[in-house]
Design a protein around this nucleic acid. Structure first.
Lengths: 185, 185
DNA sequence: CGATTGCGAGACTCATGGTCTCGATATCGA
DNA sequence: TCGATATCGAGACCATGAGTCTCGCAATCG
């Protein structure tokens, strides 16, 4: 039933999702939904967490290629119908701190950890600069994709992922570690 | 009155803003609000556009410093109360394409153009690589700040802006233009 | 075969965006 | 000065959708 709810949520558009709609589509009573989930947002959250694809497992040895693959995967996910779910949850999370926490902990952080692993490995193998701040690097690489989903100013595509990685890479790999004139205020 | 509405919107939290609330706080009737704006979201949009700070005008000659200053300014804005307005608008924009368009055109693109100018100038002066894709670079630099506002996984601070710029800089300035093994699929 | 429980269905409450109406006030013309 | 008209605050009203309560049916259990 959790599955059926998830699928049925995906059926409809991003904002056309109502609890009545979910209940009707799933062939259950609204009360039954509220028996398991505390709120509509929680349902969508669970649908989101459900679709967490199984670990990709076999990543290339090259950190660059591994990260590229992960970025492409994220781009694909964000541009799929699942992206609509994410937009919905993120929208609801503004002004609902509890939901925001849940989203960060159960979805965002999980994916982020996977990306962090590749970066950490890259640091270990020397492909990435030893003093790399992994969190900053993750933001640099993935935030553009996420923002494109949320703002819609540009398309989220695997090609965009490739370009962004290529653009950011020298900084991550360890070109001259310090820019022009240092960075203190 | 447009101003008063803006201020009063800022008074309240991000999601605690209701049209009745705005009307009451502004000391006007709801109808009067709907005389000027088509929807609640439009009111907040206008409040947002209103606070577009006047052009900073004097930027340092160094592209790096100019961009750094702009990023810090954005970080400050996003972490101010105006950030709350933005969160509200972006949230509403999910599932309201018309509002999303308006936001992109009247707020996002405007700010983006300012950032693009600095980048373009940096390309002209040779500080940035000649083949730089300005749009990609803008995403790389600013998206992390925006995403931190919207997801809240990390704080939006001027220090973060500095770190992100420093991290991205080698790629923008023109370290080895192509990463390890090209970038074709 | 009867009692109890589970659940679909849908009525109900409440909040909020958006519309309609009224009455007071302020302006304009005579 | 006085009446007509327009403006606007106030708030009633409607629609929608989240979340709760109630009912009745049916399946299970004793």
């Amino acid at each position: 039933m959790l599955d059926s709810a998830r699928d049925l949520v995906c059926e409809m558009g991003p904002h056309a999702v109502t609890v009545d709609g979910i209940a009707a589509a799933a062939g259950v009573g609204k009360q039954t939904i509220y028996r398991w989930w505390p709120s509509k947002s929680a349902v969508i959250m669970d649908a989101l967490v459900e679709l967490t694809d199984p670990v990709p497992a076999d990543l290339p040895d090259s950190a660059y290629e591994a990260i590229r693959l992960q970025m492409r995967r994220v781009a694909r996910m964000l541009s799929s119908r699942n992206g609509e779910l994410i937009r919905e949850v993120v929208a609801d999370a503004q002004g609902d701190p509890a939901l925001a926490d849940t989203f960060r902990e159960r979805f965002f952080a999980y994916r982020r950890a996977r990306g962090a692993a590749s970066l950490t490995r890259g640091v270990a193998t020397g492909e990435l600069r030893p003093d790399l701040d992994v969190d900053d690097a993750l933001d640099l690489l993935y935030a553009p994709l996420w923002l494109r989903l949320l703002i819609g100013h540009r398309p989220v595509s695997p090609a965009a992922a490739d370009r962004l990685l290529a653009l950011a890479w020298p900084g991550l790999a360890g070109g001259h570690p310090s820019p022009p004139q240092g960075e203190g205020s």
